[in-house]
Design a binder for these strands. Sequence first.
DNA 1: GTCTATAATTTGATAGAC
DNA 2: GTCTATCAAATTATAGAC
Lengths: 180, 180
Amino acid sequence: MDRAGTAEKILDVAESLARHGGYGGFSFRDLASAVGIKSASVHYHFPTKEALGVAMTQRYNDRFLDSLGDPRDSRSVAEKRQAFIAGFRAALVEENLMCLCGVLGAESASLPQPVAAAARGFFERTRDWLLEALETDPALGDAKAREVAALELVARLEGAMIMAQSLQDVSVFDRVAASG
Amino acid sequence: MDRAGTAEKILDVAESLARHGGYGGFSFRDLASAVGIKSASVHYHFPTKEALGVAMTQRYNDRFLDSLGDPRDSRSVAEKRQAFIAGFRAALVEENLMCLCGVLGAESASLPQPVAAAARGFFERTRDWLLEALETDPALGDAKAREVAALELVARLEGAMIMAQSLQDVSVFDRVAASG
DNA sequence: GTCTATAATTTGATAGAC
DNA sequence: GTCTATCAAATTATAGAC
């Protein structure tokens, strides 16, 4: 245990803090003290906050997409949809945190451009995953209908997470997620 | 013109800045310089940032709810739904800003408690407005179904706004909004 | 790779003149 | 009501010892 290098630990803590209070909501000192080092040591691993923000977001995106599995595997469309919803639910309920890119997306206009671009990548990749997963859905014949269905599901889950947090009621997420 | 008092101007600018970069994303100095005064003068009108945050959010909520009209007036359910969607769309497209409480909701866990409570009020009040507006919807018989429909619409629109901003594509909002 | 020390800037907030 | 002046604290970031 504890085999993770310092850079990984920094990304773990940075992600937690950013999913709590956004990109502007954590400082190198918060971060360093939670990791157990000094803020100067954080700069050794990530030269700037912007570089840390990009690395953190890319790692989040990769991990989330990975957890969904192959959108073209043998699972049914319903199973894939449920796996997608479960990914968001786990972020909210098991980790008790927001979706990183939901938070970053909300403050997107004020982020350093490379961080905003990394957050944008989350929405492009999740949309594309759903586009492939929904390809065999008989209720969604053409590509346009599939794209709207994909965008709509991501939007609904992101909004539901924010409302569940603000209203302090996880059932808000569950009821909205099941309303598709 | 320019009859608005300084306190109102401060709230106008604070709201703009917060809808751009969140509660943590603006400072009293940013704010003051945009209004054309000094930061010490902002403290004359609002003693703390927390007090300013609460006033700004309550005013936003009142104005948004006001713009929706009476949820029990003679309009059809479809008209009221469209008015609700139009309120969100105007925030995004005409003002080119996020929904204040979407942004605050995303960073809710890191806000001063009174500001988080004010943001929560937005979601309670919009949900309640929709509950009343949907009361005559023949497709939504019982109160539970109406509440899910209300939560779902707010969630979908909030998520769609964030995605439209992050993907820099207003049509994302329109397509998701119309997908109900 | 981590530290101490520090620079340069920004933050929310206050005191007191006008 | 607005200002100047200022404070204490926090911010990102760097230099250089170990």
